[in-house]
Nucleic acid binder design. Sequence first.
RNA 1: GGGUCGGUACUCAAGCGGUCAACGAGGGCAGACUGUAAAUCUGCUGACUUCGGUCUACGAAGGUUCAAAUCCUUCCCGGCCCA
Length: 400
Amino acid sequence: MSKSDLQTINNILNRGTVEVLVKKDLEKKLISGKKLNIKFGIDPSGKDLHIGHMVPIRKLQQFQSLGHKIQLLFGNFTGQIGDPTGKNQTRTIKTQEELEANAKHYLSQVKKILDIKNIEVVWNADWLKKLNFADVLNLASQFTVSQMMERDMFQERTKKDEPVSVHEFMYPLMQGYDSVALKADVEIGGTDQTFNLLAGRTIQKAYGQKPQDIITVPILEGTDGKMKMGKTTNNYIGVNEPANEMFGKVMSVPDDLIIRYYELATTIPTEEINEIKNKLERGINPRDIKMQLAKEIISIYHDSAAADIAEKEFVQIFSNKELPTAIEVKKLAISSGNIVELLSVTGLASSKSDARRLIQGGGVRINNEKIDSPDLEISLKKEVLIQVGKRKFLKITGSN
RNA sequence: GGGUCGGUACUCAAGCGGUCAACGAGGGCAGACUGUAAAUCUGCUGACUUCGGUCUACGAAGGUUCAAAUCCUUCCCGGCCCA
């Protein structure tokens, strides 16, 4: 076993993990060099991923680099029920084509980190839909109601007088049975998955298998630094976002999250991160460190050239308060128009009322001059530059 | 099945016949300051408007009333307690 392999094993077990159960067991397995089945479950809803989603993916990549088998499991069966982690909405059943498109979309995003040619993609409906009621009862008999209710989320919901449906108890059973079907040696998930991951161990034992080890990884906080990264909270950095967007978003992350982002969202070695930590403690401007971080992240999802350009652009717009190099140009089929109308049709404001509010709040500039009247008529004979807030720029030209 | 409490905007949460597009808080957006950090301060936060208003919204559908988020009826959904 090479030195770098040992390094990777150390990373697997210690970097960016919350819990590793059973750590000694897993360590032994890893050092033995035996090929392991590494399971990771995905909800096939076809969403766009953000760098928070990539935290466990990065962990998978570490396993992959040691030659272990990555089993990406699309929960097309479980997806119909919905993990109680989210809101208890009845999911619409998706067609086969939709599911496949979603999986493709998913893989196209994780391939920036994972070698997707070398993974096994599986669908849990393949085995779950074959189970009959007796099988389900057998699975259910592995747990007591109190054990189920121990799950923190159920506790919370009960405390808040929110409903918990019986079928939600089935979710960990199914996920656990998935581990049986895959003969998983290790399963990875966010800390919110701990219960489900542990259920896998119980159920594997019931089926006479050696229980999987589990690794839980942190849920990355979003750019607001408070809530977990997500689309609904609008605090995410999407992996498919343009480099400039990424740069700005990383810069808006609160200072005290810099190290966490380094640990969870980059491949910078731990020793270097410690150096950065030292620098911060010695009072270096966190802004400069954050710029490094932004470039680091962009290099992963774009490349280092794009990262440099994004940095220049950022300095230009926000430090020097100059215009961006490239501004989108929109052509309209009119020769002039009311400013409120223009803001609304170009999407710079979500409605005419919104446009009026923005103008009254002093957030709109035309050709670099602040305007204050919503009745302004704008001639489009020449190209007009509209700026809304600090970061929305648009050039409009008319029909003649 | 019985009892009881409840369902209000992105979230929490007031309001309990007119002054309610709906108090307040959080979030969001914009402005000042700044490092697009934090903290702080200010304004805005349903849509349309000839800026007079108009329309749509307080679980759903009906009804009472000049007037309903507020009262009545039925229905749907949920919590808790009892069985």
